[in-house]
């Protein structure tokens, strides 16, 4: 339990504010829970509520780039999805100056369609006009470095290739707030360098970046502040070096 470090100087206006965010998922328990209850009503009772976030609050100001760390299943990805507005908080709320864009590692957008079609659809879904989407197409494919494979269905891509394509689609638009959920971890060295550069560029355009990563190196390289999420709680919030050190110390125990 350490004291949070004082805020670094010259910070802008609040960009993202999370106020007591709780997220509960209702999942169907399987295995034992199901085998025990044969009847329809028992099975309904098999629904388990998973409390993924248990009251997370913080505020992020213009120009900050936030690292988010924590062990698997701690609620990092849920937090990212909630900030992006893809999952709604069960209690509390997230406020932002503009709609944040999330780059996650979940499955391909539409696995049956080719990379080319996914690029176009992704660009259209993000709000590009038809003309803009076609115009952006070349840039997106070039950034992804996948032009050789762009005609193949996305389900044939490796997870690294899928992540590269998704990342390239998402950064084709300037986002004021960008959430990167381990999307960089799967790329190769060259692509990772290119993406980290792109994230730094975005940040310079007064953008705010959240980076979820298990690589402490990339957290320390790109972030000015770190949030440590532990079992759905915000355990620590502050200077990257301090938080990473405390996190690593707890992981060794």
């Amino acid at each position: 339990m350490t004291e949070a470090p004082t805020a670094p100087p010259k910070l802008g206006a609040p960009i993202v504010v999370a106020n007591d965010v709780h997220v509960e998922y209702r999942t169907h328990a399987s295995g034992k829970a199901l085998a025990n209850g044969g009847s329809l009503f028992k099975r309904q009772k098999g629904i388990r509520v998973v409390h993924a976030l248990k009251g997370v609050s913080f505020e992020v100001r213009e120009g900050e780039s936030i690292g988010v760390i924590g062990h698997n299943g701690s609620g990092k990805s849920t937090l990212m999805r909630t900030i992006a507005g893809l999952t709604t908080a069960t209690q509390g709320a997230v406020y932002a100056s503009s709609r944040p864009a999330l780059l996650g590692v979940n499955a391909a957008l539409i696995p049956d369609l080719s990379g080319e079609k996914n690029v176009l659809l992704g660009a259209l879904a993000m709000g590009h006009s038809k003309a803009a989407a076609e115009e952006q197409y070349e840039d997106i494919v070039e950034f992804s470095g996948l032009s050789e494979f762009i005609d193949l269905p996305m389900k044939t891509y490796s997870s690294g290739m899928q992540a590269r394509l998704r990342f390239s689609i998402a950064v084709s638009r300037d986002h004021q707030i960008l959430l990167v959920d381990e999307a960089l971890a799967v790329g190769d060295k060259a692509f990772r360098d290119k993406s980290e550069q792109r994230i730094r560029d975005l940040r310079e355009q007064a953008g705010t970046v959240f980076l979820v990563s298990h690589s402490m190196r990339s957290i320390l390289d790109t972030c000015t502040r770190v949030l440590w999420i532990d079992h759905g709680n915000l355990k620590m919030d502050g200077d990257p070096k301090k938080v990473v050190k405390a996190y690593q110390a707890s992981a060794k125990k």
Binding site: R99, A101, A108, L109, G127
Partner: peptide, 9 residues
Amino acid sequence: ASLVRSLNF
């Protein structure tokens, strides 16, 4: 689901 979880529209 994966489209809904990754993009806002």
